[in-house]
Nucleic acid binder design. Structure first.
Lengths: 344, 344
DNA sequence: CTGAAAGCGCTAACAA
DNA sequence: TTGTTAGCGCTTTCAG
């Protein structure tokens, strides 16, 4: 086979750097410099190259660039779930930052399964992404090893209770649990229950519950009832779980839920079943999703900033990539507060 | 510089096919065949290669494979929004299919802006993805051209009212609008209003509304009031828009909303403001998100299958890629039905 | 500031 | 069934 001497071989195919080089009478490498905004390019040369490129409809091939340059302009993002608004909001935040750059998001959904997360990490790292954003601080040993050894920045989001492998942006779930316990006790509640779901995967919800229970004990009012459902969190599950819990423990005067979806279900159940909220019973959630404000009674919740968490994670990643993270902290704890509504 | 004769150069780096080849005493291309499950590989050779690979911890580099093989194992997905559950559900469906394959999802969010969509398409096509999934049938001329000319399969999702460029999976929004008009008229409504949002970007919502209005005219009961908000759809916007519409048109006895988020807002507003739903006023949405069942009154809505739409889109894409789509239709219209709740 | 040479790690095409 | 050769389209040296 004759070697590719001239770009005219590539008839019909997508134009390459060689086409641009031939047409502009400049070397390939100089063209490359133009498209990468590399330094040391005269504006005359730049203009010639750009003209040729646009005449040809040339677009750089990022795959070739990635192979030669040993890094793709991809950022791998692994989220545990798409079934409530939390992670879509985080993704939206990440995208809002990344879409302004040449980086693209590759998505993996782990379904709250650390084994699935592991294979996603393995898989996505093979692409040589520019960086990785994963959820939580808990991973399998193999995942942890891969995340530690890979050269690129890794941001662990959602959780600030612990030390990230590399970079971290999250909230303190321990603090969240404690704050809510204090809030309920301060408002005079005595028989307090807890409802969780999804077999308490995300370790984060366990952290919240344990801190919640610990603080209740400290305040002399230990948890009166607890119910952890097996299914995925949802409004519907919150309804049925609340009903089930109140059947066995009709005297509860407060319930803290693992998240707002469950709590909204609880609220709807209580309203439908004739409970007086908050007089009979107080209800509180976690996250502060948009829906809590739209309820007939505004749900008390702990507000977290998911979109902002995505933004910060992406910015931290970019900053590290660009070496702008030198003095700055590698872990960011996002604010958190009890947002009192009408249900406590 | 001396050329790379032996894999021992790559000290510390990730192992490559050459390392595996050296260690197993087999040629690189044979190793390559093993990892690609290519035909004509003896099981003895396969075993040797696999042993060497696992001893070395070798993982194929998909970037190099993509350059040499002229296609990445990426599927580009462009959705207009992450701010309600609709597209996350679609993504979840897509992922459920793709995660079982070697394909990965690259995500773009267009924010309902066709110009943004265009630049995402341009950008993502440059990666040579295996296929593309985009939302809607309406695109800029340039987008349409790129989607037409690119060699890979393109699935346009969400909308079945029109002819997809290549492949399509969606529902008929025209039918949806007509069905709801019939439903409201059949239930005796006489002064019917409509509330939309987001300046009616997605053309799909316009199709629904126009079909709705057309059918009302046909039935002799033309639309009594219409309000299109500028902001993004949300429960909160549904509340305020409903209030605003009912202030100017207090005699409405039904409102059809562009989607469930708005309709739930309307429901909450009406309940809070003392309207009797559905006696005073009927309310109906579109989508059938999980939340409609969790409301104190179950919202009447038009049920669509978003997760399933994602599944079908991904399956159609894979089928086309594998040449299994020959006889089968290239456009799939998903079912749709009015799901009567307590609000009509 | 510009360019020539030599790969990045893999696979298509062709031989054996 | 296995191997040889020649790139994929770009970027990294290193020289001018």
């Amino acid at each position: 086979m004759v070697s590719n001497q001239s770009a005219s071989d590539n008839v019909g195919g997508r134009p390459t750097l060689r086409h641009v080089a031939e047409r502009s009478g400049v070397s390939e490498i100089s063209c490359s410099r133009v498209f990468r905004d590399a330094p040391n390019v005269s504006s005359a040369l730049r203009a010639k190259v750009l003209a040729a490129a646009s005449a040809l409809g040339y677009t750089p091939n990022p795959v070739a660039g990635a192979l030669a340059g040993n890094a793709t302009d991809l950022v791998a993002v692994i989220v545990p779930s798409m079934s409530n608004s939390v992670f879509p909001e985080v993704l939206d935040g990440i995208d809002s930052v990344l879409s302004g750059t040449r980086y693209r998001t590759v998505l993996g959904i782990s379904h709250y399964d650390l084994q699935t997360e592991e294979s996603l990490v393995r898989d996505l790292i093979a692409w040589n992404p520019r960086g990785l954003i994963v959820s939580g601080l808990e991973h399998t040993g193999a995942t942890r090893q891969m995340l530690t050894r890979c050269k690129m920045p890794v941001v662990e989001i959602m959780d600030a209770d612990g030390t990230p492998i590399d970079l971290g942006v999250g909230v303190s779930h321990t603090r969240a649990g404690r704050l809510m316990a204090q809030h309920l006790v301060a408002s005079g509640r005595q028989r307090i229950g807890y409802i969780g779901a999804w077999g308490e995967r995300p370790a984060r919800s366990v952290k919240r519950r344990l801190a919640f229970e610990r603080e209740l004990v400290r305040q002399g009012i230990p948890l009166a009832a607890r119910r952890i459902e097996a299914g995925d969190s949802s409004v519907a599950l919150g309804q049925s779980a609340t009903e089930a819990l109140l059947v066995t423990q009709p005297d509860l005067d407060a319930i803290f839920y693992a998240n707002d979806d469950l709590a909204i279900g609880g609220l709807l159940y209580c309203m439908g079943a004739g409970y007086q909220v908050p007089d009979n019973i107080a209800l509180a959630g976690f996250n502060g999703i948009a829906l809590v404000d739209a309820m007939p009674l505004r749900l008390t919740t702990i507000q977290t900033a998911r979109y902002e968490m995505g933004v910060q994670a992406a910015q931290m990643l970019l900053a590290d990539l660009e070496g702008r993270l030198d003095g700055r902290p590698r872990k960011l704890t996002m604010p958190l507060k009890v947002r009192q509504g009408d249900t406590t």
